[in-house]
Design a protein around this nucleic acid. Structure first.
Lengths: 201, 201
DNA sequence: TCACTCATGTAACGATCGTTACATGGAACA
DNA sequence: TGTTCCATGTAACGATCGTTACATGAGTGA
């Protein structure tokens, strides 16, 4: 963990954020960050080792960054955690990191045994982050899956088109749908509760 | 458009459905489908030409396949078009084609000028398909974006985990949300209409 | 001063890449 | 029968890939 190596990781991350992971090769990467392929292999052992360390650092940075928005209140009351999470994810400082992780995730799914152990958890973990903050009335595995899919889909759309306004409005619409469903279910629950009390009395 | 070329396209599609597009190289492809790299270049001009024709054929097959479910009724009444579309997309005969197109879409977004003119429209066009069938009450650009994102996200989740049951339930939940919102808005609309009539009278 | 470790440069290895040159077989048509 | 065009095989080209061998300079503690 020398200073030189950390510096190389920093620069390699910048390079990967720009150029992606799919067609990565050592010599252009080395030339782009002011070193040589020889030194990359010297410090990281191999190309795969470099990618491992870079992806690990990327996940760590995102994890730390996400922690700053983790102090959200419950859904429905105040700003929705989903909205907060969306503002974080669509921030232009975080979005390139997400793009890189999505790319790695895609490659890992396509070619099993590639990077998958560095992505298995905590990479796209804002889904758990959101799901754990759903109110009980609309909390289920399917609903958590839906919330995660909305995020994945909207971020992909944002990455493809760059249309932040439209994707943000789509998320707002989804939050509205969720809120209305929550209100409908709790109203039914209150009615049932009242009915139950009446019978009891 | 010789028979031999069509046969090569068929086999190349099968190969790409299995092995993906990212790390494609001519010699393994040729060996996998019983020909030679020499002949692939002879028939398609270049590797890029081959990918163009293969992706074009893939889109054409999906377009035809999607047309078979295009005779859906309006949302809310009967089976939702989204559900119908989901059953089509998650069919194990169609899913590999979608995976290939998603991969191409990802590469095209990452490396501008790559395949993008072969994907610009009609590739992921079930989004328009769905959006055009939303009832007026919940029809907007944002809502269409949301529906598309739900599809993209759920299909990615299905491709990643293979969990058809959970992703299908998530879609059902979303349809429920949409339906409830539709009912709420039309109810409000009816009340407003009644109020308006009363005043008029 | 000397040995030793770390960092770095030069150059090459074998493999694979997309592509091409050249030759040939075989069918169709004059 | 001869010619012409399509299909195919063999072999190679130059480029690039990840990786490695070897040498050397720089710093550092004994």
């Amino acid at each position: 963990m020398s200073d030189r190596k950390d510096q190389l990781i920093d620069r390699a991350i910048d390079y990967l954020l720009k150029n992606g992971l799919a067609g990565l090769s050592l010599r252009p990467l080395a030339a782009g960050i002011g070193t040589s392929a020889r030194l990359l292999v010297f410090h990281f052992g191999s190309k795969e080792g470099l990618i491992e360390e870079v992806l690990g650092e990327v996940q760590e940075r995102l994890r730390i960054s996400l922690a700053t928005v983790a102090s959200a209140k419950a859904l429905v009351a105040g700003e929705a955690p989903m909205k907060r999470c969306w503002r974080w994810a669509s921030d232009k400082r975080n979005l390139p990191y997400l793009r890189l992780l999505y790319e790695a995730h895609f490659i890992a799914v396509r070619v099993p045994g590639t990077y998958e152990r560095y992505l298995n958890r905590s990479s796209l973990n804002w889904i758990e982050f959101i799901a754990s903050r759903l109110p009980e009335s609309i909390s289920s595995a399917a609903m958590a899956t839906l919330c995660g899919a909305v995020f994945d889909g909207l971020i992909m759309e944002l990455l493809s088109t760059g249309d932040l306004r439209r994707t943000t409005r789509a998320l707002d619409d989804f939050i509205t749908l969720l809120r209305r469903e929550h209100e409908a279910r709790t109203r039914v629950a209150r009615i049932e509760e009242r009915t139950y009390k009446k019978r009891k009395a």
